[in-house]
């Protein structure tokens, strides 16, 4: 695979998240009854960062949970390698909450579909919104994001690589790579 372009630097990721935090607060008229759910793996630190931004604006941080959607994937009977399962931890009652689902990349929409099913099994949230760092298009399901860090037109043989220091070490960055 070869690298095509650097899409976002660390400071641009930070500014995108600050803007998204403002948009979330604007849309929900504050942080009351708001909660964030990060999708494993890189949605988890992104949810934590958005919560910290919201806390610095509102004075208190919304509760944060983490969700592993593997058991809700629609291809488990077809795949040749076994995905490692991660813990789902949602330490609050979702039924009273407006949930913001957070993930790094929105592509086919299948992960978000699985996450919606998983969240609804945890209770009946008042609403679910979707926050995405990079929307690269090519949806296969009727899913759209409410908050987007960066819209990035891509082709299907390209790969969006998100690096976050909490998971990957080093500097935050988003790069576009191309498969041979």
């Amino acid at each position: 695979m070869k690298r095509k372009a650097r899409i976002l630097e660390a400071d641009e990721i930070h500014r995108a998240l600050v803007r998204m935090a403002h948009e979330i607060l604007e849309h929900n008229r504050g942080a009351a009854d708001l909660a964030l759910i990060g999708v494993h793996t890189r949605g988890v630190p992104l949810a934590g960062r958005l919560a910290a931004q919201i806390a610095s604006l509102e004075g208190s941080a919304p509760p944060v949970g983490q969700l592993d959607i593997t058991l809700y994937r629609d291809d488990l009977s077809e795949i040749a390698t076994q995905p490692v399962l991660h813990r789902t931890e949602v330490p609050f009652d979702v039924a009273t909450k407006h949930l913001v689902l957070v993930d790094d990349v929105l592509y086919t929409g299948r992960t978000s579909r699985a996450a919606l099913d998983a969240l609804i099994d945890l209770g009946r949230p008042r609403s679910i919104q979707l926050a995405i760092l990079v929307d690269r298009g090519h949806r296969e399901l009727p899913i759209r994001a409410d908050y987007v860090g960066k819209n990035l037109p891509t082709s299907r043989n390209e790969v969006v690589k998100v690096r976050l220091y909490e998971v990957d070490g080093g500097e935050d960055q988003v790069e576009l790579w191309e498969r041979p």
């Binding site: 593997t70 058991l71 809700y72 488990l76 009977s77 099913d117 099994d121 945890l122 209770g123």
Partner: peptide
Amino acid sequence: RPVKRVPALQGF
């Protein structure tokens, strides 16, 4: 969970 069921082994 309130709903103690996941779709993981659907089709098996």
